[in-house]
Amino acid sequence: MSVVTPTSPQAVASSPRSRWNSPAIRRFRRHKLAVFGAATITLMVVACVFGPMLLPYNDTYIDIRQRFAPPFSGSHILGTDPLGRDILARLLMAGRISLSVGFSAMAVSIAIGICVGVIAGFYQGVVGAALMRFVDAMLCFPSIFLLLAISALIEPSVPSIVLLIAMTSWMEVARVVEAQIRSLRTRDFAVAAVSMGASNTRIMFRELLPNAIAPIVVAATLNVAHAILAESYISFLGYGIQPPTPSWGNMLEGAQSYLTSAPWLAILPGAAITLAVTSFNFIGDGLRDALDPRLDQR
């Protein structure tokens, strides 16, 4: 997601700063799309966590006589799937899975990315070069090709899918962090820390990393979006999370063959994915503007 997004109107007043009324937070709040995104995600999370408890149907209950009921036609609000399971219940349960996959994969990929990036940026030289060439090599694989190749390695389950997605999406983070650390390293405070005899680990993670947090937060948000998308891609291609556990991606698997007779099978989960991913991208965009240090200096 390397899109250059224009900054929001630069009307940033230089009012006195308190911690919770910082310009960054105000800038984020002024970014209407980001607020919309945040609200949508909050709503989705609440619905997925509490929704299934309020529904009369279980997401795995099979009722073969009720198969292919269209939405709004009976007691199943959003209709049923080829096994007669309630789609709304499945969408909400799938949301739990897909969102958790998104967040967990993000966490893992950020962790890997930070470690590789910090080490490469701090040590530079041979270690740094070797690490960054490895990053470059990984980026030579188009992401789907890499996802598919690695998916052959694993037995599909929720944790392994998280790992799979994380393994293919840490490289951008590593690059961003490496660049930040490399430039921060020469700044006064870092030089000062070295002269005070701080250990390398301390300098890397206590002094340098906190100063690189802004781009990491942005990358993290975008990585959630990426992970949800990636999950849907591998599921669509048949290598994803296994039934009966629903995910937005595996609900779409096989939906193409019912496109004429039961289009809602394809439309609904896809719409959920698009909504979630768009929201995360909006938030990421808002965060980028909010945390942009150039705006801060104005």
Binding site: M1, V3, L33, A225, L229, S232, Y233, F236, L252, A255, Q256, L259, P263, A266, I267, G270, I273, T274, V277, T278, F280, N281, F282, D285
Partner: peptide, 18 residues
Amino acid sequence: AMIALSIPTFWFGLVIIY
């Protein structure tokens, strides 16, 4: 543009076909 970047390509394909 933001939405376009968020839609799963295959799903967009399905919608176009539909």
